[in-house]
């Protein structure tokens, strides 16, 4: 038990009290879960035919190939684009010239403040309005919107990452006669990227979740594949449960990967903490939605 700042290590009487609380809470939770399962059963959601498509190879293949694979593709393309966007604008925001810094700041703030779904709708109708094939049009509007939004977020991450490189590094580089560009590309960026890799992967979780917002523009990937299934089988609840479970599992795997990379490359150093205050073990999770 992690005795935090909130309470002392409990004595015997308190432990007994906590045990009572635990039992009551456990009973309440079990009752709640049982009630939900009973309702699911009572409304026929647990019948075999409603779950059958998820045990049929043809449908599993459709979910994995037309659903998961395309979702991953969209998220991956968006993150690649976002990293490029983020580096450009993150470095731009650190520029010494006001006429570079200002527009970069404006662009980053704009795309951070505008809802992704709005960007998608705009890309769908205005930017890629001329495209014939619907699925390609959706694909690229989702990717472009996510690139712009996540790029703007990553620009902040990059800026913070570059600022997190110890000052002496840049000073030493200037001292041996490097130019500004060299200091940035040879000394600062390589070190900053190492600190930022976990943050980039966390951003990929965000991008992956946000691909589902493509629902607003005809949709593609996992969120889209749900529709024909529940329309054919009338199994809305099981479909939503299965598709959500896939999202959750993939995201958890990505998070695991981020933690592993963090340990491997960055060592025990603290994770880059962009908008946070305080110095404690905030697990950098709150800023990302």
């Amino acid at each position: 038990m992690s005795a935090g700042v909130l309470f002392d290590a409990p004595g015997p009487a308190t432990r007994a009290r906590h045990r009572t609380y635990s039992i009551v809470a456990a009973l309440a939770l079990v009752a709640g879960v049982a009630f939900v399962i009973w309702r699911l059963y009572d409304t026929g959601q647990l019948e075999y035919d409603k779950w059958e498509p998820f045990l049929t190879p043809r449908y599993i293949e459709a979910i994995l190939v037309d659903g998961l694979l395309i979702t991953l593709q969209m998220a991956f393309s968006a993150v690649i684009g976002a990293v490029v966007f983020g580096v450009l604008f993150g470095v731009g925001k650190l520029s010494d010239h006001r006429w570079v810094r200002w527009p970069c700041w404006l662009v980053v703030e704009f795309f951070r403040a505008v809802p992704v779904i709005m960007l998608m709708i705009f890309c769908f109708y205005a930017v890629f309005g001329g495209m014939d094939e619907l699925s390609r049009r959706t694909y690229w509007s989702v990717v472009l919107a996510l690139t712009l939004y996540n790029g703007a977020v990553l620009a902040e991450v990059f800026r913070a990452g570059i600022n997190a490189v110890p000052r002496g590094q840049a000073e030493a580089a200037y001292a041996i006669g490097m130019r500004k560009t060299q200091v940035m590309t040879i000394v600062l960026l390589p070190q900053a990227v190492k600190i930022m890799i976990p943050a980039i992967i966390s951003q990929m979780v965000v991008a992956l979740k946000d691909t589902s917002l493509g629902y607003a523009v005809a949709g593609l990937g996992l969120t889209r594949i749900a529709k024909p299934i529940y329309q054919q089988f009338g199994n809305h609840v099981p479909t939503i449960i299965v598709i959500t479970a896939i999202y959750v599992v993939v995201n958890l795997l990505l998070t695991l990967l981020a933690t592993w990379i963090q340990k491997k490359f960055v060592g025990e150093k603290k994770v880059l903490d962009v908008p946070m205050v305080g110095q404690a073990q905030s697990d950098r999770s709150t800023g990302v939605i």
């Binding site: 699911l40 749900a226 939503i240």
Partner: peptide, 20 residues
């Protein structure tokens, strides 16, 4: 945190009313 918001919206639009 690992569930897309759209799925929660879908659940409340299509699924929740069928159970409760």
């Amino acid at each position: 945190r690992n569930t897309p918001l759209v799925m929660i919206f879908l659940f409340f639009q299509l699924g929740a009313g069928k159970i409760f």
